[in-house]
Amino acid sequence: MAAAAAAGAGPEMVRGQVFDVGPRYTNLSYIGEGAYGMVCSAYDNVNKVRVAIKKISPFEHQTYCQRTLREIKILLRFRHENIIGINDIIRAPTIEQMKDVYIVQDLMETDLYKLLKTQHLSNDHICYFLYQILRGLKYIHSANVLHRDLKPSNLLLNTTCDLKICDFGLARVADPDHDHTGFLTEYVATRWYRAPEIMLNSKGYTKSIDIWSVGCILAEMLSNRPIFPGKHYLDQLNHILGILGSPSQEDLNCIINLKARNYLLSLPHKNKVPWNRLFPNADSKALDLLDKMLTFNPHKRIEVEQALAHPYLEQYYDPSDEPIAEAPFKFDMELDDLPKEKLKELIFEETARFQPGYRS
């Protein structure tokens, strides 16, 4: 834990890192770190609560700039109880001085990944967590956004079992017609939660990839272990087919990539493993919904509104309290091709509203 900075004593240090967030945020305490930044909790002297502050230093890398800009653009436009918001952003007053960006968010005690390492969940908890994931996802999908990296560590939890989806750095506007060349190379989302079509096709992607990830998360809540822990690309596919069985001819016809289709045709026939054999203690309604989410063919996979209306979630289902976005989200430009200098300018502009004396 960093010592509390005395008023006016300059930035606090946390594990050798400068955290320049005073005077409003003090009493910093280390939480963890990701690929390009550290997260601390801090005391907000204005709202009198502890908050989470993520320090991001992305400006050396085009990919990190892209992810940072995506996350900020999306989260500043989203407003939903099951999606983490941005409360404040701290950065230098000029673009030349801006080396880091500090993002202030609600402090959540833990995440689903940490929880599943230590606790076996009751059916009631599984049901409530799944409902909140789908409630947040309904809003995301209504904005025409794909999260693309749903996994237990991106689901934040607090002691009252509130759940918030975080990390929109890989999110995209849904565009089933656009052929994202190089899709697989830039697709760094965790393999275990990846839909089979991501490994088999490169053309376009749809909201059904997020539903697949939610199915993987439900299976993990039922058993405290990942359902498809593939060691590499082909191993991942083999794990999936080992449980779902061989795809039907109709399902194979959806695979545009001939090499991928021929690979699947070359494999020995596998039978589907019954879900109640894998999860003998699970609620039968939970397994019915799991089956509809972990469907090989993305066109037959359940959609988020149908999933919310499934009998497993009937005690929570309330369409009048499951809000959607006001308007579909649009990125003005494809960020993939922009140089990091341009992305830095866009991050600077996007964060201006939090600067003292800002006038829109």
Score class of each variant (00 low, 15 high):
Gly8His: 10
Ala9Glu: 12
Ala9Arg: 11
Met13Arg: 13
Met13His: 09
Val14Pro: 14
Val14Asn: 06
Arg15Gln: 09
Val18Tyr: 00
Val21Gln: 06
Gly22Pro: 00
Pro23Cys: 00
Thr26Trp: 07
Asn27Ile: 15
Gly32Phe: 03
Glu33Asp: 13
Ala35Cys: 12
Tyr36Ser: 15
Gly37Asn: 15
Met38Val: 13
Met38Trp: 10
Ser41Ala: 12
Ser41Glu: 13
Ala42Lys: 00
Tyr43Gly: 11
Tyr43Phe: 14
Asp44Phe: 12
Asp44Val: 13
Asn45Val: 13
Lys48Arg: 14
Val49Thr: 11
Val51Tyr: 12
Val51Thr: 09
Val51Ile: 14
Ala52Thr: 13
Ile56Val: 14
Ile56Ser: 15
Pro58Val: 15
Phe59Ser: 15
His61Ser: 09
Tyr64Asp: 15
Glu71Val: 14
Ile72Phe: 12
Gly85Phe: 12
Ile86Met: 05
Ile86Cys: 05
Ile86Gln: 04
Ile86Phe: 14
Asp88Gly: 01
Asp88Ala: 08
Asp88Glu: 14
Ile89Ala: 01
Ile89Glu: 02
Arg91Ser: 15
Ala92Val: 10
Ala92Phe: 01
Pro93Tyr: 03
Ile95Gln: 12
Tyr102Thr: 04
Val104Asn: 04
Gln105Tyr: 15
Leu107Ala: 08
Leu107Tyr: 06
Asp111Arg: 00
Lys114Leu: 08
Leu115Val: 07
Leu116Cys: 04
Lys117Tyr: 07
Lys117Met: 14
Thr118Pro: 14
Gln119Pro: 10
Asp124Arg: 00
His125Glu: 05
Cys127Glu: 12
Tyr131Glu: 02
Ile133Ala: 00
Leu134Glu: 08
Lys138Phe: 02
Asn144Asp: 00
Val145Asp: 01
His147Asp: 07
Arg148Val: 05
Asp149Trp: 08
Pro152Trp: 03
Pro152Leu: 11
Ser153Asp: 11
Leu155Phe: 04
Leu156Glu: 09
Cys161Glu: 06
Asp167Ala: 14
Leu170Glu: 04
Ala174Phe: 06
Pro176Gly: 11
Pro176Ala: 12
His178Tyr: 12
His180Lys: 06
Thr181Pro: 10
Gly182Glu: 12
Gly182Arg: 14
Phe183Ile: 15
Glu186Cys: 03
Glu186His: 02
Tyr187Met: 01
Val188Met: 06
Trp192Asn: 12
Ala195Met: 01
Pro196Lys: 05
Glu197Val: 13
Met199Val: 00
Leu200Glu: 06
Ser202Lys: 12
Tyr205Ala: 06
Tyr205Trp: 04
Thr206Gly: 05
Ser208Thr: 14
Trp212Ile: 08
Gly215Phe: 05
Ile217Val: 00
Ala219Gly: 10
Glu220Asn: 02
Ile227Phe: 15
Phe228Val: 00
Pro229Met: 06
Leu237Pro: 10
Leu241Trp: 13
Leu241Gln: 00
Gly242Asp: 13
Leu244Met: 14
Gly245Tyr: 10
Ser246Trp: 01
Gln249Ile: 07
Glu250Ala: 06
Asn253Ala: 09
Ile255Asp: 06
Leu258Tyr: 09
Leu258Phe: 04
Ala260Arg: 01
Arg261Glu: 08
Tyr263Arg: 05
Tyr263His: 00
Asn271Gly: 08
Lys272Leu: 09
Val273Lys: 02
Val273Trp: 02
Pro274Glu: 07
Phe279Arg: 03
Phe279Pro: 01
Pro280Val: 03
Ala282Phe: 08
Ser284Phe: 08
Ala286Gln: 03
Asp288Ile: 11
Leu289Thr: 05
Met293Phe: 06
Phe296Glu: 00
Pro298Ser: 13
His299Ile: 11
Lys300Gly: 08
Glu303Thr: 08
Glu303Gln: 00
Val304Ala: 11
Gln306Trp: 04
Leu308Ala: 08
Ala309Pro: 08
Tyr312Gln: 06
Leu313Tyr: 00
Glu314Ser: 04
Glu314Ile: 00
Gln315Thr: 03
Tyr316His: 00
Tyr316Asn: 15
Tyr317Met: 08
Tyr317Val: 00
Tyr317Glu: 00
Asp318His: 06
Asp321Lys: 00
Glu322Met: 03
Pro323Trp: 03
Glu326Pro: 02
Ala327Pro: 06
Phe329Met: 11
Lys330Asn: 11
Leu335Met: 12
Glu345Cys: 03
Glu345Lys: 13
Glu349Ala: 07
Glu350Gln: 06
Ala352Ile: 08
Ala352Gln: 08
Phe354Gly: 11
Gln355Tyr: 03
Gln355Met: 08
Gln355Asn: 07
Tyr358Lys: 12
Arg359Pro: 10
